[in-house]
Amino acid sequence: MTDTHPAPRTAEQRRRDVLKRLEEDVDAWVSTVNPDATPCLVPLSFLWSEGSLLISTRASRPTVRNLRAAGREARARVALGHTRDVVLIDARAEILDPGELPGREADAFAAKLGWDPREESGWVYLRLRPERLLAWREESELAGRELMRDGRWLTR
């Protein structure tokens, strides 16, 4: 019997893999919590831009309501990948009206995702700035899974 599990990646390789996934993936699971501590988990499309995830959703959605209720302490957890290639991001969240987002970012968002929230009524952007990031594939990578802490990469 042969071992079918890949060798553990170095932290540097995991960082490169995470950045590639952030550039190329389109969707992520975004989790927020309301004031009663009820979790909300939804799939949302994103653009990786200037070191943050840029998302758009309706202002009336629970995700936005939860973040507004949290105010300046608004946070979200983002999950990319599947159970054998996980990226978890704990992020500080900011809500932006469409006019607050720089045009180049809004244009890049529209180009990547194929639709433009600026053309819709009642939509906002969410900027999720990573503060902590974990990435691992198998048990062999659990020990070194933290790649970012306090918004700073731990690897080069």
Score class of each variant (00 low, 15 high):
Ser49Arg: 15
Val42Pro: 08
Ser56Val: 02
Trp136His: 10
Glu24Asp: 11
Val78Arg: 00
Pro117Phe: 00
Asp85Trp: 10
Trp136Thr: 01
Ala37Arg: 08
Arg72Trp: 09
Val30Phe: 12
Ser52Lys: 14
Ala79Glu: 11
Asp107Pro: 14
His5Glu: 08
Lys20Arg: 13
Gly51Cys: 06
Ala135Pro: 07
Ile95Phe: 00
Arg21Ile: 03
His82Gln: 06
Ala70Trp: 05
Ala28Lys: 02
Phe109Gln: 13
Arg77Trp: 09
Arg14Val: 01
Leu47Cys: 02
Val26Gln: 12
Arg16Gln: 15
Leu142Gly: 02
Arg61Cys: 11
Ala91Phe: 04
Arg77Gln: 10
Arg145Gln: 12
Asn34Met: 04
Asp25Arg: 07
Leu133Tyr: 01
Leu88Asn: 11
Asp150Cys: 01
Ser121Ile: 14
Arg152Ser: 10
Ile55Gln: 03
Val26Met: 14
Leu19Cys: 06
Thr32Glu: 04
Glu105Thr: 15
Gly151Glu: 13
Ser60Ile: 06
Leu44Phe: 00
Ser45Phe: 10
Leu47Tyr: 02
Asp3Gln: 15
Ala106Lys: 11
Asp25Glu: 14
Gly99Cys: 11
Thr32Arg: 00
Leu41Phe: 04
Trp136Ile: 01
Val87Tyr: 00
Glu138Ile: 08
Glu100Asn: 04
Leu96Tyr: 10
Pro43Asp: 03
Thr38Pro: 06
Trp115Tyr: 15
Pro62Ala: 03
Arg132Phe: 13
Gln13Phe: 00
Arg58Pro: 07
Glu119Pro: 07
Arg145Leu: 11
Thr10Phe: 01
Leu128Asp: 03
Val78Tyr: 03
Glu12Asp: 08
Trp115Ile: 05
Ser49Cys: 11
Asp25Val: 12
Leu44Val: 06
Thr38Val: 14
